[in-house]
Design a protein around this nucleic acid. Sequence first.
DNA 1: AGTAAAACCGGACCGAGGTCCTGTTTAAAG
DNA 2: CTTTAAACAGGACCTCGGTCCGGTTTTACT
Lengths: 232, 232
Amino acid sequence: MTGLTPPPPSPDQGTPDGTHGRTPDGTRGEHPGLALIPVGEPPQLRADAARNRTRLLEAASQLTARCGAANLTMEAVAAAAGVGKGTVFRRFGDRTGLLLALLDHREQQLQAAFISGPPPLGPGAPAAQRLHAFGPAVIRHERDHHDLILATRTDPLRAYSVPARHLRLTHLGMLLREAGVDGDAELLAHTLLGYLDTTLVHHLAVERGMSLDRLEATWHDLVTRLGAGPAE
Amino acid sequence: MTGLTPPPPSPDQGTPDGTHGRTPDGTRGEHPGLALIPVGEPPQLRADAARNRTRLLEAASQLTARCGAANLTMEAVAAAAGVGKGTVFRRFGDRTGLLLALLDHREQQLQAAFISGPPPLGPGAPAAQRLHAFGPAVIRHERDHHDLILATRTDPLRAYSVPARHLRLTHLGMLLREAGVDGDAELLAHTLLGYLDTTLVHHLAVERGMSLDRLEATWHDLVTRLGAGPAE
DNA sequence: AGTAAAACCGGACCGAGGTCCTGTTTAAAG
DNA sequence: CTTTAAACAGGACCTCGGTCCGGTTTTACT
């Protein structure tokens, strides 16, 4: 006996597959055995656990709305949800995990927009046009949720394993290839994503007062120079 | 009386002007009233304060070398330097400030290399060639000090006000303009700098095992597409 | 040099993130 | 329906970053 405890089964930091195949109450709604995307682990939550999960997210959402994400304390969330502190950590792993779960919920709209929404952001438009539309959409989204996203970035490396980023990355890579851009599509996608990073956008737009028009103009410039023609 | 204390006079987080006009013992060595660059405040340290500053940096350097920057505790630094905890915070503001001061010391080599070193990185070579040389130099530098840099990124926004970044940014902007690249030089410089960001490089090179060759190849590709011809 | 004010040193103290252990609830097997 | 084991809830506890205040040293002025 070592005294070491195995890590918590599967604290969720957003949806592991980035597809949100989950009903609003936190349980899976997909057909058994029909996972189109490799499902990491079944987050088959027990009834009360699922109930507390939503309570916690609800409480966290209200507290962040009132005091800002930066001032959110785990104890306050636990108290507001009427559960113990350990419960919060068991469910979400750590503070960042809780914040990521909150973010994940709000990312659904954006993801739906560029995966299955109307053109030019969604499918139906040529890849070049979708690329051009992607930047402004993400910039505005990041700007709306900057406090939550920034609070998430305490662990700088975690940002890269977040499913939402993976989704954006593969999406951008696909569009680049589809638009006939030659070169290392994956690294070019990383570059474009870097330009859209919340910390950069916040620094330029909020702290330095740069206009969104200017930021978006350079996005179009970048996409054009990378080989996807200008949006006509 | 409010009970509020004014913030500490001027905790240093690296050199405020990014030029390192400082003698090894921590005092300014420049001529009085001859500041070429707007000097924020005179960090005229008292004798014992300067002595303790170097002791602290020395202790911190040894501790990070032994246990890694992530495991560096302020109390351990204070104890190793033989001073009180409050002294550390008075001098460096917070943990990030201390780490930045450590980093700042190590950045001098890189800065000297691209500001006044030999071509193609330093002056003397055409701007396009200097641009191409800049990426690999920074990537290797970041890779060598990734643990220290990553430990610095606890406050995501702070990275943008660090003098070293400012220096790189203006340097890149200057080279872009000099190379005849049209477009928003400042934002393009931000884009290029984003590609060289430590977190990205670390994620790709260390976590995902990507080769430096591949990273550098795409750097050259980026610089070329931005308008500076390929390095001949 | 003597004196007064400002700056500094040092550690006690606080808050919050994260861990661990104990008693209890839940789901599955018989 | 009973039993049994796993998973969970809850709070006490620890560590560490950051603050605050009393005692002391350094500097500036006369």
